[in-house]
Design a binder for these strands. Structure first.
Lengths: 353, 353
DNA sequence: TTGAAAGCGCTAACAC
DNA sequence: GTGTTAGCGCTTTCAA
């Protein structure tokens, strides 16, 4: 941007309402010429000298293009919309960060509209619909839907009107492309890490067994074990509420098994907190007596636990970025790779294994 | 919105590009009439019957107003912009939530533009300026600046062009109105809580003594003590890094004092985590042997510690809402109450006192 | 190379 | 009550 290098005169700054015509007049050229240089139009030979005069006029007048007018005339807004419950329930904030960074790079604007987790799947889709509608009124060129936790969702019908991509969730009606974490690979990575440290008997603190995260992560755990010629002892897999207390109780049950494991795979970090307590209560040391690995990488938890929790991270930021990239492709009419893109969950080594 | 109650015919939905003229034609009225009923204009007697015909036309055609065109013609965008580092460093996310909820209520859109904490105060204001500029190009009617932690900031000059309010930070140049937490009252509340439980000798784990949060909270603590005819023992006030480790070290120093306190006021929750460890290490129980109170209410920490941490909350959401309310007043040409609005920090009782 | 002219979809006087 | 008329600030043919 030229404007950021030199600033317009103080007087000019105050005097808003400078239009393109003013610039043209000041530079002694036509509005078309100004439009051309400002939008960097190709093969439209404008002399270097004219271009310079225009740029200069822009600066001294403190001209600032009117994005709305431009959008109206060109019939493209350069806007994407994202409707998400993440602002409401700040867990996967990095999705927004990732999407926004990418949009910023692509010189697009991201309109963020709030949604409401409670309504996201149920019949009561009030906020979703309203948000989508609002976004569409702004003439966004693409729509993103992002959820705090991996699940199936129903997207308002009107979303079909522009390219739409789901992030950290998938279309329960199976039509829209989505971007989700590769839970299975993540589960595998976690258990492989444990195996690498010599653990052979592994306990698993499970989530609600029906949600995609639980299904995938457990499958991955089994994959790893199988590859090593081992298998999961069903006695050592216990589900609990996805909270510290739930983790505590599940851990107690596992630790008190007559033949207890030497390592614990907690399907999320919150439950790992509870597991820590159960372990310490029994006078065991982490990781010497028992190793613990988590999932989610909730920084505030994982990095502040003592010892710091080794865990598998959810690729929120990457999913966000991939979301807008996919939208870019879609709006450009390009084919996309797959209906569902799986994103890797990287292992974060800390000190609990 | 009428549209959300009945949905347009499937065919109509597909066929985008329905304009107000189409609606007028379909309803057999003028565009003006349509514009009037759609924008709920007052004292412009349109017969109930006409109005009904128009609404119906809107529905069957699946008409959706073009917000950009409307903005261009009416010269008001109904947009506010917020530039913040919060998306980058997700701590005070509730500011965004509060602002967004309020904006939504007021039927305004909030454009969120990312900023970069590192650059926020220094000479290198690259992102800030670019974000502000972008927002202004969208013709936002007001600007919000929000910081993750309470401090002085420099706002790009161009922000002066529209009403601007600072949230959780203040204008180092002292011109712009701001909304910040009442740190002093918060510190007072914390220590009063401790006094209420009979504690007389209180230790303080301090932050960097120069930042507004530290200054205010400590002052508040002193206020409370003074009111009770007590004073702070300087030996028992020790500053540390604002981390768990910093808290641990400071706590050790305080706890090993020959005449140790019976309660600890940690100026933030992260440091409280470390304090917990130091306390447990010494075989002391919370709150029986020593009470602990924090500050910040970082849910993930405060609610998962054992015992759960009693703490003082930062009113992020409220500040966000107040921010847009202030903007509303400003854009409406109303006077605002004060240059700096202080927002209360409520006490959150849990189990550590 | 540049300019004229039409029009994007809407609002808002003002006249009918 | 309703229609006419000008724009809002810009892009984009099409001619010059």
């Amino acid at each position: 941007m030229a404007k950021s290098t030199a600033s317009p005169s103080a007087a000019a700054v105050r005097q808003r309402g400078v239009t393109m015509s003013d610039v043209a007049k000041h530079a002694g050229v036509s509005r078309t010429a100004v439009s051309f240089v400002l939008s960097n139009r190709e093969n439209t030979s404008i002399s270097e000298e004219t271009r310079a005069r225009i740029i200069e006029a822009v600066q001294v007048l403190g001209y600032r293009p009117n994005a709305g007018a431009r959008a109206l005339a060109s019939r493209r807004s350069d806007w994407y919309g994202i409707v998400t419950e993440i602002v409401t329930a700040p867990f996967a904030v990095d999705v927004i960060k990732g999407a926004q960074d990418q949009a910023w790079l692509d010189r697009r604007f991201l309109l963020i509209a709030p949604s409401d987790q409670a309504d996201a799947v149920g019949p009561n889709q009030g906020l979703e619909d309203a948000a989508t509608e609002k976004l569409l009124e702004q003439r966004v060129e693409g729509l993103l839907y992002a959820a705090t936790f991996h699940r199936g969702v129903h997207v308002p019908a009107s979303a079909q009107e522009v390219p739409t991509v789901l992030i950290n969730c998938f279309d329960a009606d199976g039509k829209l492309p989505s971007i989700v974490p590769d839970e299975r690979a993540g589960g595998r990575v976690a258990v492989e890490r444990l195996l690498r440290s010599g653990h052979r008997r592994i306990g698993v603190i499970n989530l609600d067994p029906d949600i995609p995260a639980a299904v995938g992560r457990l499958e991955g755990a089994r994959d790893a074990l199988t590859s090593a010629g081992l298998e999961l002892d069903p006695d050592l897999v216990v589900a609990g509420y996805a909270t510290a207390d739930g983790g505590y109780e599940a851990a107690c049950q596992i630790l008190d098994h007559p033949d207890p494991p030497t390592a614990l795979f907690c399907l999320n970090d919150r439950m790992a907190t509870g597991a820590y307590d159960a372990i310490k209560e029994r006078g065991l040391r982490i990781p010497d007596d028992i190793a613990v690995i988590g999932f989610d990488n909730q920084e505030l938890i994982a990095a502040y636990l003592r010892p710091k929790l080794t865990t598998v991270a959810l690729p929120f930021q990457k999913m966000g970025a991939l979301g807008v990239q996919t939208l870019n492709a879609l709006t450009a009419g390009q084919p996309i790779l797959a209906d569902q893109q799986l994103v890797d969950c990287p292992l974060l080594e800390r000190s609990s294994v």
